[in-house]
């Protein structure tokens, strides 16, 4: 349905109500490879799935940011999760795998080893 500015105004009021509940302290940072290689491998869908899943689960203080090519084009789409002072690199992502990472790594605090670059390098 075509949306109106009045709808947007309503949204603004709703978001404003919830915004106070958030803590401005950033706890988790997800850095997604959005270079030419990343995009052609499917990074756009992975990024949009990450943002959607984070929002769906109402997770706060998570920042999703882009980066360029990091030189491992064959492992794209990939992203780094910076959490609790630790960096974990997930490779060959799909929207489904990215959603799993949000659930397991960010909610349940369990790294999905099978999707990490360390696991891939051993194979």
């Amino acid at each position: 349905m075509k949306k109106t500015i009045a709808d947007l105004e309503k949204i603004r009021m709703e978001v404003l109500k919830n915004i106070d509940l958030r803590n401005s302290k950033e706890e988790v940072r997800i850095v997604v490879g959005m270079g030419t290689c990343g995009i052609s491998a499917g990074a756009r869908e992975v990024l949009n799935a990450l943002v959607e899943e984070i929002n769906r689960r109402e997770l706060k203080n998570i920042k999703v940011v882009p980066t360029g090519c990091v030189g491992m084009c064959r492992l794209e789409p990939m992203f780094d999760v910076y959490k609790d002072g630790e960096k974990v690199t997930y490779v060959e992502m799909t929207p489904e795998k990215a959603r799993q990472v949000v659930v397991e790594h960010l909610v349940n605090n369990r790294i999905i080893e099978d999707y990490t670059i360390g696991k891939r390098a051993k194979e």
């Binding site: 075509k2 947007l8 949204i11 978001v15």
Partner: peptide, 23 residues
Amino acid sequence: TVLNEIKINEIPVINWIREDYNG
């Protein structure tokens, strides 16, 4: 100009854009 202090990348706003485009 409507959103003021609300960031345009808040998900409800993104959903508004989705529906607006598909409308």
